[in-house]
Design a protein around this nucleic acid. Structure first.
Lengths: 434, 434
DNA sequence: ACAGTTTCCCGTAAATGC
DNA sequence: TGCATTTACGGGAAACTG
């Protein structure tokens, strides 16, 4: 009998994914009061057990030892907690699908050294099996679960899940991981980060992007990243804000590799300086707390000169999409007609080839009304009037004469090759979470 | 004893208002699962009853006769349904405050000829009073209550409440009012409508506005408005959309009387035609299903000519406020510098006096980044230019071909005196960027 | 007072019911 | 199938709680 028990214990497998999210991007985080689902699959294909195996979900079973050290929050299921294993399709496995699970916190005094998004919980599925008068219990366990009560906890929860998943390959499962969170090698962390971008934006991070992130995140010479440092505002919160920005507004551009994104200001200057006037690139703001993206362009009017527009946040992009913001961008200099200084996406893609003449342009009169459009506009100070503006505007350049446009045209023909940064061929590096 | 009963019955008064809304604009509508509060006050100041009167809230008490005709939805309270009358402040009345009431629908088969937002319900507060071994019951009743389950039912619910409130002064309370809803005299309805605007926007409707509404709403010569007509899309739904627009984006402008709003296109033309070029007014779109607002202006360039911009919906106004949209509005005519054609708010208030140089203007460079602003722009076709070009003038024309830039440049120098449009005396009529 | 955490609730989208 | 009505839940803000 004990042999049978072991066999069955290894035969139960738990699949768990959030309901409502067709692309399960952020699994293993459960929000109280929001339903989720789990499927338990009996791997040994023994249809003769059909109807005999009743599975029950139990939250945080057998973690008493944890509660003596850390008094974590306790939760209970609201409904739907037992199912009978049954064949899904003819000849298929025995499965039980828990479709409408939902957690509610049991109000007990919490007393823990870790914050709630560092609490790791477990959902166990227990089978009680009656056979020839003898009973035995079989269990299957979910991956560690982070329970949140509000979506404002999602970024922190997601950080925990990432950290956990990286460590699970090397360490035995440890629900008290965050009491003494081990550091991660950059090599490991970078892969998980890249996978985030792949998951959210259908494209991972390339060498150059990872290199910039490494410079920003890793300070220790050994190449380790510590949990406290990773979790702080200028690391994960910053990256998560960018992921959010991509998810909401930039999926297409990111997927197509039109966003260099993680590139320092210094390197931006180096790259663009070697290019003709009007070459620009997109990069994420390094200072902005919430995700933000800006474009920088080069102007060789007299001497090489670099400009960057005030970064766009999600609020800005909800007013006008990035392609529109680029294609309609206007610079106004006193005495000159407005113009769009953005001509070539680095290295040498024509602006409209990359960003299209997207969306609605000026609409004609409709129904007797005059159409209108918002035009993103920057005003450039005119040379004589701006001595106090210490910024990057070269007071001499100012593009007032028509010959300058000729120069632009000349540059356009004179496009050299040699892309310093080339988009990766296909999203490659990935970490499998399932 | 029966005398005492009567006395007490008249002495109970119910105050009812939604929690969470400091200005109780839309009361007597309760949403399932959302808490509301009610205060029951015992008018006869008899502190000796303190602690003896227990009040219980009952939903739809004694409306059995209604259920035989109309099988309405049934609801029950989730919690907090009994309170003991107590003195609030020293020497004050006896009151009971039901602070956390909330309704849940009891699932029974509904079978009614009216839609759910026409169902009228009642909350009764019942007192059981024990005195010298004798008991008597005292009741107090709320005003009719409309119960909704989602905020998408609020406009319809609000229509019912308005209709009800007008009729309650002339008719006895009738929970089956909407089986045969009586028509309303315009005189009555108009007052309620005006009060809505007062409540939402701190200013009621004036004679002219009401007159326009009357023309639109009342068709019967007797001056009656019928419920079915009022409730339809082009009446209440339209008005409610405008109320919503005011509440979200236009409170200040409405309060200050800068929005004429309800004025026909024809009358707009008459008013503006008699005014100098650049005079404009704000009116609500009559065709747009959701609330929308437009501005019309007059131009005496050659012959008197009226223009109106494509109306702004709440989506548009969430991208840029109305004052900003007005103060930064730009018209682009080929060969001319852009200009703002809006000079004087009807009758003769200078634009900036009414709408200020509101909000953030073009910000200079911040943190090394170049500031940017959205400029609402319309392109006007120029008479002589090719007829098929009358729309779709690319605003940027990005100076890619030198001859084209020269042409633009030439045009710019060749600015004719623009006799059509004369600048006003006060600060610059140009779009102010700083 | 304050930070961490949860609850509340609008508005939209999806699901449900008839 | 379509419409009426309810449920689901993300996200922002208020409320809670030590």
């Amino acid at each position: 009998l004990s042999l049978l028990t072991l066999l069955l214990a290894n035969a139960l497998v738990v699949e768990k994914q959030p309901v409502m999210s067709s692309t399960p991007q952020r699994p293993l985080i459960v929000k109280t009061g929001v339903r989720f689902s789990a499927t338990v699959r009996f791997l040994a294909n023994l249809p003769e057990f059909k109807g005999l195996l009743k599975v029950k979900a139990v939250f945080d079973k057998d973690v008493e030892e944890i509660l003596t050290i850390n008094r974590l929050r306790q939760f209970r299921f609201l409904r739907d907690v037992t199912k009978v294993l049954d064949v899904d399709e003819p000849g298929g496995d025995l499965v039980a699908e828990f479709a409408h699970m939902s957690l509610k916190e049991s109000r007990v005094k919490r007393e823990s050294r870790v914050i709630v998004t560092e609490e790791l919980h477990i959902v166990k599925f227990v089978t009680e099996f009656q056979f020839a008068g003898l009973g035995c219990n079989i269990e299957a366990s979910s991956l560690p679960v982070v329970v949140v009560s509000s979506s404002n906890q999602m970024p922190a929860a997601w950080a925990s899940v990432m950290w956990c998943n990286v460590l699970s390959s090397s360490e035995p499962r440890n629900l008290l991981l965050f009491l003494e969170p081990p550091p991660l090698a950059w090599q490991q962390l970078s892969q998980v980060l890249s996978w985030q971008f792949l998951s959210v934006g259908q494209r991972g991070l390339d060498e150059n992007q990872l290199s910039m992130l490494r410079d920003r995140i890793v300070d220790a010479p050994e190449g380790l990243v510590h949990w406290d440092r990773f979790k702080n505002e200028s690391t994960w919160t910053w990256i998560d804000g960018i992921l959010d920005l991509i998810k909401r507004h930039l999926v297409d551009l990111w997927r197509d590799g039109h966003i260099m994104g993680f590139v320092s200001r210094k390197r931006t200057n180096v790259l663009l300086r070697a290019k003709p006037t009007g070459t620009f690139l997109l990069r994420f703001s390094e200072s902005n707390k919430e995700g933000a993206i800006t474009f920088s362009w080069v102007d060789h009017a007299k001497e090489p000169q670099l400009h960057a527009v005030d970064p766009y946040t999600k609020d800005d992009l909800s007013k006008m999409s990035m392609p529109d913001s680029i294609c309609r961008y206007s610079v106004k200099e006193e005495g000159n007609p407005t113009r769009n200084p953005l001509l070539y996406l680095y290295p040498d893609i024509h602006r409209d080839a990359a960003f299209g003449l997207s969306g609605t342009n000026f609409s004609a009169q409709t129904n007797g009304y005059i159409g209108r459009t918002l035009v993103p506009t920057s005003v450039f100070p005119t040379p004589p009037s701006s001595p106090q503006l210490q910024m990057e505007v070269d007071p001499e350049s100012s593009a007032e004469e028509p010959w300058r446009a000729q120069e632009l045209f000349h540059h356009q023909l004179d496009v050299p090759g040699s892309p310093v940064w080339s988009p990766p061929a296909a999203p490659s590096t990935e970490v499998n979470f399932y």
